[in-house]
Amino acid sequence: MKIATCLKEVPTQDSRYELADGGMWIKESDLTFGVNECDEYALEEALKLGEEHGGEVTILTLGCQRAEKSIRKGLAMGADRGILIRDEKDQLKSPHAVALALAKVLEREKYDLILTGTQSDDWGYTQTGVLVAQLLGLPHATIVMDIQANPAQKTVKALREMESGWFQWVELPMPSLLTIQAGISQVRYASLKGIMQAKKKEIRSIELSDLGIDFSSVPQLEVRRVYFPTTDKKAEILEGATEAVIEQLIEKLKKEAKVL
């Protein structure tokens, strides 16, 4: 089975953000970056399918040069090779444009299965995977919690999570695309051997501009303003040393909130 898995590099979860460009964007220089959470799970699923059915796992990332580190991490987990579409100037301003670039590279090879995450941790659009599927003319299933592939019959079964505790099993012909939910299984750690081997694995770089895509008719999104959320109800932050804070809290819970 030939599997491709999309992997995005995003600011790590503990990132603290500062605004820049007069509230038009954030300061990126102080951030640390890592693999998007559900993309790690997608890669894990790809590796398991590869182990079960034989075949090759390719990681596909669109991002700047820095993202090579995240691809390398995926190779250390066991993926066979990586492709980086370099968008150094962060030109692509919509999931549609990103999906078009990803699809352009994916269509060059005949993958049996394409996996993406459900949602990116930075933009959180929850649409790139399905857009890629549709642009490639492939069927899809979203928010997948379990996968059973049958390469001989060229079908794949996917367990979709749905509203209020409901699930459904669906069957798709391969090739097809699945968007993977975080928590589908346990993500493996890279072994020392894996890390050593990853150094020798191929990461092919493709310049975005070399893909020859005409983005002029692609739906674009324009960010007008970025700001910290304000709510009517914001927590009263209790300050001081641990002892003092705890005393305040107990006092407040008893006298103000009257819940103790």
């Binding site: 953000y17 954030i26 692609v218 739906p219 674009q220 960010v223």
Partner: peptide, 17 residues
Amino acid sequence: TRRMFRNKLNADVQIRS
């Protein structure tokens, strides 16, 4: 208006199409 970066920031976004 939508949330970004795991709920930490808001962004006002317009569709250009």
